[in-house]
Amino acid sequence: MILISTRLLKNTKISGITLFPFILLKNRSDLHNKILVNHEKIHLRQQAELLVIFFYVWYVMEYYFLLFKLKDSFLAYKSISFEREAYAMENDLNYLETRKFWSFWKYILK
């Protein structure tokens, strides 16, 4: 389910965030942004594959490992395997139809 949450995302640079089972978008106009919505749907699939809680644990651990290694918060975020897969495949609107189980694995530390 996609929700508009201007208040929650108001003072952030975030356009959208996935908190299973919801996709929260900052602006109503982003409902028509197929690439952003696809990016967030990829995160929904990742979260479901890892039974949600393990996704968040892995995400946070990978982020802090990369932050320590790279010493740059934005670069650490962009280097997280889940984000790398989502950014790499967000333009392929049919990706989720052919995506294999745990496809994020091939994006880990490469």
Results as ranks from 00 to 15, higher is better:
82 F>A: 07
27 N>P: 00
88 A>G: 00
75 L>I: 15
40 E>N: 06
31 L>Y: 08
19 L>I: 14
81 S>Q: 10
14 I>H: 10
85 E>F: 01
63 Y>G: 01
9 L>D: 01
50 L>G: 02
76 A>V: 04
16 G>D: 03
21 P>L: 02
100 K>R: 12
92 D>P: 09
23 I>G: 00
35 I>P: 00
63 Y>E: 04
25 L>T: 00
99 R>C: 06
56 Y>H: 06
1 M>C: 08
76 A>I: 01
73 S>L: 07
103 S>H: 07
82 F>Y: 14
37 V>N: 04
3 L>C: 11
84 R>W: 07
102 W>F: 10
39 H>G: 10
17 I>E: 02
100 K>Y: 10
49 E>F: 03
95 Y>G: 12
51 L>F: 09
48 A>K: 12
75 L>K: 15
70 L>D: 13
90 E>H: 11
40 E>I: 04
16 G>S: 00
27 N>A: 01
99 R>D: 01
3 L>K: 15
92 D>L: 04
30 D>H: 14
5 S>L: 04
100 K>Q: 10
76 A>C: 06
55 F>V: 09
7 R>F: 15
17 I>F: 03
4 I>L: 01
4 I>E: 02
41 K>C: 07
49 E>P: 02
1 M>R: 10
93 L>T: 11
22 F>A: 06
90 E>R: 10
23 I>H: 03
27 N>W: 06
51 L>W: 04
19 L>Y: 05
105 W>I: 15
88 A>S: 12
39 H>A: 08
55 F>A: 02
88 A>L: 03
7 R>Q: 14
23 I>Y: 03
71 K>Y: 13
103 S>R: 01
17 I>H: 06
105 W>D: 14
33 N>H: 08
48 A>Q: 09
97 E>M: 11
99 R>Y: 01
71 K>F: 13
52 V>A: 04
40 E>H: 06
93 L>V: 09
76 A>K: 03
85 E>A: 06
46 Q>I: 03
7 R>K: 15
32 H>W: 11
63 Y>P: 05
102 W>E: 05
51 L>T: 02
81 S>P: 08
109 L>K: 14
53 I>H: 09
4 I>Y: 02
65 F>I: 14
65 F>D: 10
105 W>G: 08
35 I>M: 05
67 L>D: 02
32 H>L: 13
6 T>Y: 13
13 K>I: 07
57 V>T: 14
27 N>K: 13
84 R>L: 05
35 I>Q: 08
28 R>F: 09
49 E>T: 04
16 G>H: 01
6 T>G: 14
33 N>A: 09
79 S>K: 15
18 T>W: 07
82 F>W: 12
60 V>P: 07
35 I>H: 04
99 R>I: 09
82 F>T: 05
105 W>C: 10
102 W>D: 01
21 P>V: 01
45 R>V: 15
30 D>F: 13
103 S>I: 00
37 V>Q: 02
86 A>V: 13
69 K>W: 12
38 N>F: 03
76 A>P: 02
110 K>S: 04
1 M>D: 08
54 F>K: 15
31 L>H: 07
86 A>I: 11
52 V>G: 04
43 H>R: 00
42 I>A: 11
58 W>Q: 10
47 Q>M: 13
99 R>M: 09
39 H>Q: 12
69 K>N: 08
19 L>V: 13
94 N>C: 10
13 K>E: 10
90 E>M: 13
101 F>P: 12
25 L>I: 11
38 N>R: 06
68 F>W: 14
15 S>Q: 11
